[in-house]
Write a protein that binds this DNA or RNA. Structure first.
Lengths: 214, 214
DNA sequence: CCACGTCAGGATGTACACATCTTGCGAACA
DNA sequence: TGTTCGCAAGATGTGTACATCCTGACGTGG
C-alpha cells in the first residue's frame, strides 16, 4: 500500500473517531499508543496529527500531549453562518447532474431514516448524519465548494453530538426526516437551487435548536 | 523562539515564495537544501511542506522531489466562481466595524497604487496585490470566512502573475486603482455590503480578463 | 542505430535515539 | 501541618541513519 493511501486512511479514521466522540474534547491522543495500534512508527502518525492540528481538530502541546480541541460558541456561530450560505450556494454553483441513481439513493435515505426513527439511538444517529453529509457532498459540482464544506462540517459536527443529551433525539430525527423528504422532492423535480434552499433552511433551524440548549 | 512560531514563519515564507513565483510551478524544492537554508533539520521542514501539500501548493513525489503544483483552468474556474460569492458574503456576514484607521489605510492604498501606476513593475504589482489582499482580509469579521478566503486566494493568485506577461499591466493597475477607489468610497459611507458587491464585481472582471488570455 | 535492461545517484518516506518541555508527586524545611 | 523546591516520568519536538523509490544515463545486444 502506498504511503499516501495509508496517510489518508489514518487521517479519516482519526477524524471519524474525533467527530463520533470516541475521542471527546480534552482527550489525550498518545502518539506512541496510536502508532502501535496502527502498526507504524511515530513519524507517519505525526504527519496525520499535524494535518488534524492544521484543521483545528487537535492541538499538540509540547511536553503534555496531543489534545482533542473543543468548539466554543462564538466560533460555532460564525461557522454556522457561513455553512448556511454555502449550503445555498451548493444548489446554484454548477451543481452535479441528478441521475436516477441519485434519486434511488435519497429514497434509501428516507427508508433508513424511518428505521432510525423506530429505534432511536445516539450513535446510529451520528452515523446517519455522517452518511447523509457524504451524500449531500456528492451533489456539489464545484470541487472548491465541496472541499470547504467538508472542512467546516468536520470542524463543528461534534457540537451536535455533545449537545444531543440536552436535545430531544426523536424531534431531531423527525427534523432530519423532513429535510430528507424535502430534498428528495426537489431532486425529483431536478431543481438543485431548491435543494440548496432547503438545506440552508435546515442548517439554520438546526443551529437555532442547538443554540437554545447551549 | 517557540516551535510553532518558527513553523508559522517558514510556512509563510515558503507560501510567499510560491505565490510570488520565486518558485514557479514545476520547481523542485529540495528538503535538504531548504533545511540548510533555514538552519533546521529536515524534520520540522517536512512538517511545513506537508502543510503546503495539504493545501495543494506543492506535491511530494517519493523518490523525485517536492514539486510546486500548477493550477489548471477548470480548477481555477471553480475557485473563482466560489471566490466571487465569498467576496460578496464578506460584506454581509458580520463585517468588521469601519474605523477612521481603516479609512486612512485605504487612502494610503490609493496613493501607493498611483505610485505603482507611474512605475509599472511586475514584482511591485505582485507585492501590492498581496498587501491589498491582507487589507481586505481585515475587513472580514467572520473568522471562518476569512480562513476560507485566504486558502482560496493563495491557491490561485499564482495564475495571475503567470499570465501577466500576456495581460496589459497598465490596464491591470488601472482596474486595481478603480477597485480601490470604489472600495474607499463605500467604506467612507460605512456600507460594507457595498464593499462586498464591489469586490465581487472586480473578482468577476479579473477572471474575465484572465480567461481571455489563457 | 535503436531498444531495452541495468545500475547509480539522489530524492522522499520511515524508524529510532535523543533533546526539550510540562506536570505532578514527594521530600525537606519553616 | 502547610509550603516550596526539586526531580522523575512521560509527552512532543528534533536530528540522523537507513529504507524505499524514481529517473536518467550508460552499456549491451539485436
Amino acid at each position: 500500500m502506498s504511503a499516501e493511501t495509508r496517510h489518508e486512511r489514518l487521517y479519516h479514521e482519526l477524524r471519524n473517531r474525533i467527530c463520533m466522540l470516541d475521542y471527546p474534547p480534552g482527550e489525550k491522543l498518545g502518539e506512541e499508543a496510536l502508532a502501535a495500534e496502527f502498526g507504524v512508527s511515530r513519524t507517519p502518525l505525526r504527519r496525520v496529527l499535524g494535518r488534524l492540528a492544521d484543521e483545528g481538530l487537535v492541538e499538540a502541546r509540547h511536553g503534555v500531549g496531543t489534545i482533542v480541541t473543543d468548539v466554543d460558541a462564538r466560533e460555532m456561530g460564525q461557522v454556522y453562518a457561513l455553512r448556511e450560505e454555502l449550503a445555498q450556494l451548493s444548489g446554484t454553483l454548477t451543481p452535479a447532474p441528478v441521475t436516477s441513481a441519485t434519486i434511488a439513493e435519497v429514497r434509501r435515505f428516507i427508508h433508513s431514516c424511518e428505521m432510525l426513527a423506530e429505534a432511536p439511538d445516539r450513535r446510529a444517529f451520528a452515523r446517519f448524519n455522517m452518511d447523509w453529509f457524504a451524500f449531500t457532498q456528492g451533489l456539489i459540482g464545484n470541487e472548491a465548494l465541496a472541499e470547504v464544506s467538508e472542512r467546516l462540517h468536520f470542524r463543528t459536527t461534534r457540537i451536535w453530538l455533545q449537545a444531543i443529551g440536552r436535545l430531544d433525539l426523536n424531534a431531531e430525527i423527525a427534523a432530519f426526516r423532513e429535510e430528507i423528504r424535502q430534498v428528495a422532492t426537489a431532486l425529483e423535480a431536478g431543481d438543485m437551487a431548491a435543494v440548496g434552499m432547503i438545506r440552508r433552511a435546515h442548517v439554520s433551524m438546526s443551529y437555532r435548536r442547538l443554540s437554545a440548549v447551549m
